Amino acid sequence: MRATVYGIPGSHPVKSALLMLDHKGIEHRVVQVPPVLCRPALRAMGFPGPTVPAVRIDGRRFQTTRAIARELDQLRPHPPLFPDEPGIRADVVEAEGWGDEVLQPVARRLAWATLRRDRSGMASFFDGPMLGLSPRVALAGAGPIVAVSSRINSAGDAAARADVAALPRLLDHVDALLTKRVIGAAQPNAADFQIAPSTRLMMLFDDLKPALEGRPAARHATRVLPHYSGHMPAALPPDWLTPLS
């Protein structure tokens, strides 16, 4: 069994998919696709939706981190991504959904809001060609890509500023999940793999890193995902960051 993973450079949901494949011991290769252009490219490759991660295994195609988790548990049940005990499983499923629907979009919007102001960190997330394009060629169109991606992901100033203000509360929730052992146990689960990459991505932001340092959420993210290439220089307006101080 071998998987092909299609993803955008630096994408935290793609990191989630790769962590789950590693957890299952499934060999995989990664094909990088450019932001925005991934949408028609994935359609052309037979995927039903426009989003990454997109995974192909033995002719089967599936997308979104939550769908991938369930497909992988069917394809290779052990080690599981979800606990067997119903009550614990329900807690993990709820945490996984929160990580997907709440935390993941915050990290994404803040990334695009930062890149709209300073694209100098964009190249640090590129680690290979994208659909045959070198990183240098792909970056030549970075301005329009960032602008369109910001619109697609609703990463305008009002949304991004609200995300910064909400960040302490969101990190408190991750810390609470760790205290309750919904995540952070010896055997990682789907919620660990869903939540940790979002936290880990935000640790690469100079603007956000001070708010994360020393928190249980940050230690958890580093333990689950020790290496995450990339760097976002400080670019957000200083008055936005007041809630983090």
Score class of each variant (00 low, 15 high):
residue 31 V to H: 10
residue 32 Q to C: 00
residue 32 Q to L: 15
residue 32 Q to S: 12
residue 32 Q to K: 09
residue 33 V to L: 14
residue 33 V to Q: 03
residue 34 P to H: 01
residue 34 P to C: 06
residue 34 P to S: 11
residue 34 P to Q: 12
residue 35 P to A: 05
residue 35 P to S: 06
residue 35 P to K: 02
residue 35 P to F: 05
residue 36 V to R: 05
residue 36 V to E: 07
residue 38 C to T: 12
residue 38 C to R: 14
residue 39 R to Q: 14
residue 39 R to E: 15
residue 39 R to K: 14
residue 39 R to D: 07
residue 40 P to W: 01
residue 40 P to D: 07
residue 40 P to Y: 06
residue 41 A to T: 14
residue 41 A to N: 00
residue 41 A to D: 11
residue 41 A to P: 01
residue 43 R to K: 15
residue 43 R to N: 09
residue 43 R to E: 11
residue 43 R to P: 01
residue 43 R to T: 15
residue 44 A to Q: 14
residue 44 A to D: 13
residue 46 G to I: 09
residue 46 G to A: 08
residue 46 G to P: 08
residue 47 F to M: 05
residue 47 F to G: 07
residue 48 P to D: 15
residue 48 P to H: 05
residue 48 P to A: 15
residue 49 G to V: 00
residue 49 G to I: 06
residue 49 G to K: 14
residue 50 P to H: 08
residue 50 P to A: 12
residue 50 P to G: 12
residue 50 P to R: 09
residue 51 T to L: 14
residue 51 T to D: 13
residue 51 T to Q: 13
residue 52 V to I: 13
residue 52 V to C: 13
residue 53 P to S: 05
residue 54 A to C: 02
residue 54 A to L: 10
residue 54 A to P: 02
residue 54 A to Q: 07
residue 55 V to R: 07
residue 56 R to T: 13
residue 56 R to K: 12
residue 56 R to C: 12
residue 56 R to G: 03
residue 56 R to W: 00
residue 57 I to M: 12
residue 57 I to N: 03
residue 58 D to W: 03
residue 58 D to C: 09
residue 58 D to I: 03
residue 58 D to M: 06
residue 59 G to T: 11
residue 59 G to W: 07
residue 59 G to M: 09
residue 59 G to E: 04
residue 60 R to Q: 14
residue 60 R to P: 00
residue 60 R to T: 13
residue 60 R to F: 08
residue 61 R to W: 01
residue 61 R to V: 08
residue 63 Q to T: 10
residue 63 Q to N: 05
residue 63 Q to S: 10
residue 63 Q to H: 02
residue 64 T to F: 01
residue 64 T to S: 12
residue 64 T to D: 15
residue 64 T to Q: 14
residue 65 T to M: 06
residue 65 T to P: 05
residue 65 T to Y: 02
residue 66 R to E: 11
residue 66 R to M: 13
residue 66 R to G: 09
residue 66 R to D: 08
residue 67 A to L: 09
residue 67 A to E: 04
residue 67 A to N: 13
residue 67 A to F: 00
residue 68 I to V: 10
residue 68 I to N: 04
residue 68 I to M: 01
residue 68 I to H: 01
residue 69 A to K: 01
residue 69 A to Y: 00
residue 70 R to V: 01
residue 71 E to M: 11
residue 71 E to I: 02
residue 71 E to W: 03
residue 71 E to S: 08
residue 72 L to R: 10
residue 72 L to F: 04
residue 73 D to M: 06
residue 73 D to E: 13
residue 73 D to R: 10
residue 74 Q to L: 12
residue 74 Q to D: 04
residue 75 L to W: 04
residue 75 L to T: 01
residue 75 L to M: 11
residue 75 L to Q: 07
residue 75 L to V: 00
residue 76 R to P: 00
residue 76 R to W: 02
residue 77 P to V: 05
residue 77 P to D: 02
residue 78 H to D: 15
residue 78 H to Y: 06
residue 78 H to Q: 15
residue 79 P to R: 11
residue 79 P to K: 11
residue 79 P to H: 06
residue 79 P to D: 04
residue 80 P to Y: 02
residue 80 P to T: 06
residue 80 P to S: 10
residue 81 L to V: 08
residue 81 L to H: 09
residue 81 L to S: 08
residue 82 F to S: 04
residue 82 F to P: 03
residue 82 F to T: 02
residue 82 F to Y: 15
residue 82 F to C: 03
residue 82 F to W: 10
residue 83 P to L: 03
residue 83 P to I: 02
residue 84 D to C: 00
residue 85 E to I: 04
residue 85 E to H: 10
residue 86 P to L: 04
residue 86 P to G: 06
residue 86 P to M: 04
residue 87 G to I: 11
residue 87 G to F: 09
